[in-house]
Amino acid sequence: MTSLPFPLTETPSAETAEIGRKLFAGPVDFVKGVVSMEGLPPADRLEICFAGRSNVGKSSLINALTGRKSLARTSNTPGRTQEINFFDVGEKLYLVDLPGYGFAEAPVAVVRQWQALLKSYLAGRSTLRRAFVLIDMRHGVKKVDEEILDLLNKSAVPFQVVLTKADKIGLAQQEQTLAQVRTALAKHPAAFPELLVTSSEKGEGVETLRALIATMQ
């Protein structure tokens, strides 16, 4: 077993992998997109959310996770998603797709509005069990990511880093990024103590993520 802080998430057992497969093989339905806290659905079930800077591959990962090609909208234009999108997974939990933060091809006022919504949701949703913060493995933790990590930490929202686009770089660069991320997370008590490496294109880490979500209490 590795002695490094924030080791990689272990491959799930056959039993937990099957639990995850069954959950996401069932119905996954779009509920609504909201632009204000008043529009949130009732807080009547566990929620997990996905956060990440614009163009980190969040929509692609959600589509891979759910086995749907276009459940979450993908775009080559960073910052296009301006709503908090709720998806019902098997009537057991909400999967929440948060608006991308950071660079955005949108008017400044619009950017400020949805960034404020993002912060309000993270700080005030009582049923939010875990936030998955997506980090591009090619770039590591950037300043804009630190702002979200600080917010999650201050709000006492447990969060776990999911590294995306692992197939885009070699093993040596992956190790460099992992070291940088581990250093960045060391000052955040709310950080879940394992990292998950994924590739939406190759399917790497998807089974593990399904199992993690499906076995949350």
Results as ranks from 00 to 15, higher is better:
Arg129Val: 01
Arg129Tyr: 12
Arg129Asp: 04
Arg129Thr: 12
Arg129Lys: 15
Arg129Leu: 06
Arg130Gly: 09
Arg130Val: 12
Arg130Ala: 09
Ala131Ile: 04
Ala131Cys: 15
Phe132His: 13
Phe132Glu: 08
Phe132Cys: 06
Val133Thr: 13
Val133Trp: 09
Leu134Ile: 08
Leu134Trp: 01
Leu134Thr: 04
Leu134Gly: 01
Ile135Asp: 13
Asp136Trp: 12
Asp136Leu: 11
Asp136Lys: 09
Met137Cys: 05
Met137Gln: 15
Met137Val: 07
Arg138Trp: 13
Arg138Pro: 11
Arg138Tyr: 11
Arg138Asn: 13
His139Leu: 14
His139Phe: 07
His139Ala: 12
Gly140Ser: 07
Gly140Val: 06
Gly140Tyr: 11
Gly140Trp: 10
Val141Gly: 06
Val141Ile: 12
Val141Thr: 01
Val141Phe: 02
Lys142Val: 06
Lys142Ala: 09
Val144Asn: 10
Val144Tyr: 08
Val144Ala: 11
Val144Phe: 09
Asp145Thr: 08
Asp145Phe: 08
Asp145Pro: 09
Glu146Ser: 07
Glu146Lys: 02
Glu147Cys: 03
Glu147Val: 11
Glu147Gln: 15
Ile148Pro: 01
Leu149Lys: 02
Leu149Cys: 05
Asp150Lys: 10
Leu151Met: 09
Leu151His: 15
Leu151Cys: 05
Leu151Gln: 12
Leu152Thr: 00
Leu152Tyr: 00
Leu152Cys: 00
Lys154Gln: 13
Lys154Glu: 15
Ala156Asn: 07
Ala156Tyr: 00
Ala156Ser: 13
Val157Phe: 06
Pro158Arg: 06
Phe159Asn: 13
Phe159His: 13
Phe159Glu: 05
Phe159Leu: 06
Gln160Glu: 04
Val161Leu: 03
Val161Gln: 02
Val162Asp: 04
Val162Cys: 14
Val162Glu: 06
Val162Trp: 03
Val162Met: 10
Leu163Arg: 03
Leu163Ser: 06
Thr164Asn: 03
Lys165Met: 15
Lys165Asn: 09
Lys165Val: 15
Lys165His: 11
Lys165Gly: 15
Ala166Glu: 14
Ala166Trp: 13
Ala166Leu: 07
Ala166Ile: 05
Ala166Pro: 07
Asp167His: 08
Asp167Phe: 03
Asp167Asn: 03
Asp167Ser: 03
Lys168Cys: 05
Lys168Glu: 07
Lys168Thr: 12
Lys168Arg: 14
Ile169Leu: 14
Ile169Thr: 13
Ile169His: 11
Gly170Pro: 11
Gly170Arg: 11
Gly170Met: 10
